[in-house]
Design a protein around this nucleic acid. Structure first.
Lengths: 118, 118
DNA sequence: TTATTATACTGTGCGTCACACATTAATATC
DNA sequence: GATATTAATGTGTGACGCACAGTATAATAA
């Protein structure tokens, strides 16, 4: 891979970074286990590494946004995560913030350069 | 500040993080100096710390997306930054990626929870 | 004379992502 | 029956980048 491609990949990583948590929270309105989250997000075109997701889930649980439990009555043992009350509130707040940022970014990107600066 | 507020601020930071570079690049289609970027972004509702911006500008220049020069013929010496060719291309690519992510996030957030999982 | 605004910069700490790795078992393939 | 792939969950380390708290200077405004 060329330097420029590496640079661009890096910038995209950084861009994606912020939205990771929000997308995970959004999916977790319904109970999900790690592996299903990965494929679920991928179906939406959002890539997340297992080594990123699992620590993230633990962190979010530690911060009190999720609760989790093992389901052993399935083909394979799975640990299900789901939003709790604080998690739902946080999702709402973060969504609002996202929408807000979104409008700002749209204006910024689509604003003709000539109207900037000055 | 309460723990929960701190937590939320932290999550918002993380959310904002990805879009910082994109918004800076977008403004830099026109020559800008650091301080004008800060106020310019603030006018769009995007907060960025001076201690975040200046290292970012230097990094982007080092990565070959910007060029900069001092303007000493003004009331105060200012260092102007502007996108170069690679920077413009990068901005285009990142914007596309942003739009893509955006659609995905919209679907994720607005999708009724009942259609998820399973 | 003091406070505020304008302007640029640095150093350090902390949080978080990505990558590589480890582990186990159910399927699918040969 | 042996081998590969998929399903599933984790850990440890490195590197990167933001935020915060500073430093510094000078032009304005009070």
């Amino acid at each position: 891979m060329t330097d420029q491609k590496l640079l661009f990949e890096n910038l995209v990583s950084e861009l994606r970074r912020g939205s990771l948590i929000l997308s995970v929270l959004a999916l977790l309105r319904q109970p999900q286990y790690g592996y299903s989250l990965i494929s679920g997000l991928e179906a939406f075109g959002i890539a997340i590494e297992a080594g990123t997701l699992y620590p993230l889930l633990r962190r979010l649980e530690k911060q009190g946004l999720l609760s989790s439990e093992w389901a052993i009555d399935q083909v394979r043992p799975r640990r299900y995560y789901v939003l709790n009350e604080l998690g739902k509130q946080t999702l709402t707040h973060l969504s609002d913030e996202w929408q807000r940022m979104n409008k700002a970014m749209d204006q910024l990107i689509q604003a003709p350069s000539s109207e900037q600066g000055g």
